[in-house]
Design a protein around this nucleic acid. Structure first.
Lengths: 159, 159
DNA sequence: AGGGATCATTCGTGAAGCACCAACTATTTA
DNA sequence: TAAATAGTTGGTGCTTCACGAATGATCCCT
C-alpha cells in the first residue's frame, strides 16, 4: 500500500477524461443515430470485441453497470443481431455473449463514422499522439489485452 | 497473424474514453461527496483553472452544456465560494467567472483525494504513462475548445 | 432616444440513464 | 432437498440534461 509517497504532479486525468468523453459522446450520438446505435452500445461492443465470450455478469462488472440494465442493453444488440447469447456448455445457467460477424462489421463501420467526431474532439493531437492515446486508453480499460510488449512509449514528443 | 492487417488506424478512442470516464466518475462521486463536490463540478473547476476569466457563455461552449444549466452549476460553486462572478468592466452584461483561492485549494484537495480512484481505473499504467495520458488529454481539451480571442496560455508547471 | 441583439438568470417540462428492489425461471452445487 | 447463482422482467424513483419561455440589464446601431 501507500503507493503515493509524494507527488510532484497533481495531475489527475479524471476531469479531463470526463470532459473529453462528454464532448465525444455528444458528437457520437448524432453520428451513430443513422446506424441505430448509441454511444453506450459502442462501449459494450468494444468491450466485447476486446474480450469476447464473457458472461453477462462479467460484462456488468466490466462496464460497472447494474446487471438488470445490462439485459436491456444486450436485448437491443441482439435484436440487431450484433451479438449472440449462447448458453455455456459448462454452466448452462450462463449466457456467453459474443460479437457476431455482423456485429464486428457494424462496429467497424461505426468507428469509421466516428472519424470526423474524433477529429473535432482530438483535433489538437496528431495521428501519432492519437495512436498513443488509444494504446494508453486501451491498456487502461482492459488491463492486459494489448499484447505488443514493445516499449512503445513514443509520446515523448511532447515535453 | 499480422497484428493489424486492415487500416492502420481504425483505432477510435471514443468508446474507450467513454468507458474509462464512466469508471472514473463512479469512483469519483463517492470520493468527492465528503468535499461537497460532484464530478461535473470538478470538470468546471478544472476548465476554469486552465482558462480562467471566461464569461459564462464561453464556458457553456467549452463544456458544451446549455447555458441555462451552467447557471445552476455556477450557483453551486459560488455558494461554496469556489468561484467568483464579477461583472466585466468592458461589457457589463458579462459575468467573468474565476476561480477563487479557496476554489483552487479545494480543487487541489479534490485531485489529491482522487488519487486512489485513479489508481483503480488507471492501474494498468505506470506513472510515466499516466503523465503522458494527462498531457495528451490536457492538450486535447484545451486545444480545440473555442479559439475565440481568449488564448489564455496556460503554461502550467515545468515542461 | 429608440429598437434590436446579447448575457445572465429563473422556472418549468420532458426525455433519458441508471440504480435499486422484488419476483420468477433454469441450473448448479452442497 | 435446499441453497446459491445467472439471467430475465417489471416497476419505482432519482438525477442529469436539453429545450422553451419570460425577465432585467446592457450594448450597439441608426
Amino acid at each position: 500500500m501507500s503507493a503515493q509517497p509524494l507527488d510532484s504532479s497533481e495531475h489527475r486525468s479524471g476531469a479531463l477524461l470526463d470532459h473529453l468523453a462528454r464532448r465525444m459522446r455528444l458528437r457520437s450520438e448524432s453520428v451513430l443515430a443513422p446506424l441505430g446505435l448509441r454511444p453506450r452500445h459502442l462501449v459494450a461492443l468494444t468491450v466485447l470485441r476486446a474480450g469476447g465470450g464473457t458472461g453477462q455478469q462479467a460484462l456488468a462488472t466490466i462496464l460497472e453497470m447494474d446487471s438488470t440494465n445490462i439485459v436491456g442493453l444486450l436485448n437491443d444488440l441482439e435484436a440487431k443481431q450484433l451479438i449472440e447469447r449462447r448458453r455455456s456448455p459448462e454452466d448452462r445457467r450462463r449466457h456467453v455473449v459474443e460479437l457476431t460477424d455482423n456485429g464486428a462489421k457494424r462496429l467497424s463501420e461505426a468507428e469509421c463514422a466516428l472519424a470526423t467526431a474524433e477529429d473535432e474532439v482530438l483535433g489538437a493531437l496528431d495521428p501519432a499522439e492519437r495512436e498513443t492515446l488509444y494504446k494508453l486508453l486501451s491498456r487502461a480499460s482492459t488491463g492486459t489485452a494489448v499484447n505488443c510488449t514493445e516499449a512503445i512509449c513514443v509520446a515523448d514528443d511532447a515535453c
